[in-house]
Amino acid sequence: MKPVVDWWTSPVPVARIAVFRTIVYLFLLYDIFVLVNDVVPHGHAAELYRPLFVGRVLPLPEPSPVLVQTLQVVLVVAALVAATGRLPRLAGWVVAVCYFEWLVIGMSFGKVDHDHLALLVAVWVLPTVGRARHDDRTPTEAGGWALRCVQVATIATYVGSGFAKWVRNGSPFAWANSAVFTWAIIRRGTDLIVWVLDFPWILRISQWMLVLAEFVSPVVLFLRGRALLLAVGFFLSFHLVTYLSLGIHFLPTVICWLAFFPLERLGFAANRLLSERIGSLTHTRWAAWRIPKSG
């Protein structure tokens, strides 16, 4: 049991949480204004609201223009505060609850997107870490658990897709032998990709590559260094190709891949730049070298 517990809580520098938090909360603003931007318009089409399971068991309010616009304002303010690292718990929990409601409304009109699992997990685990400074190298187990959850949710998005194909079609590889990419390209293929409809074998090979990658994706949780970079590169290229060919981007999942990397270095670099800039503003050039570098 102990190795499992240690794996879930293996410490990461506090600064990694601080940087990841800033990125996630700023990305959230992009998400609600650009990616899941149908929530405010959905407020005008309440008759088509078909609440999901969670909307039926919890007393969630029905969407209305007032509700969705209020949600949006609260989300923006709370996410901006949380992005600065202030009030990490209060602002974080407000974001978590409001963002969840935002997505439930967005997904309750007949279509559920699967690119938000890891991001939603991120906003629910980040407040549990509490205060985190961008220059604090101390390892934290609470932060380790939060990032591990985001990593697992990211991978679950892929391995879950693999198993969903298996469950739905009764065999693990029936999907790979089918005309599913042809189907997708006919329905929403861009000019960059429609040529491939004349070469269905290319699509079948791609289907095999994708479903195999999905099934082996949990291995990524245990990779390091160059192998990790290659694996992440593979999945990111997959998203780039589906974006260019079908207009499907999966950005909320892509952002969460950052949880695999030593983001604290970004924070340190930014701090260094900032202090150098301030240094050169406040001291003449030759006075500056006399100031001892504090340890």
Binding site: F53, H114, T157, N169, A174, V180
Partner: peptide
């Protein structure tokens, strides 16, 4: 949702 099946494009 959010613990639903990742069934987008899952049908053969």
């Amino acid at each position: 949702f959010p613990f639903g099946s990742m069934s987008q494009y899952a049908s053969a």
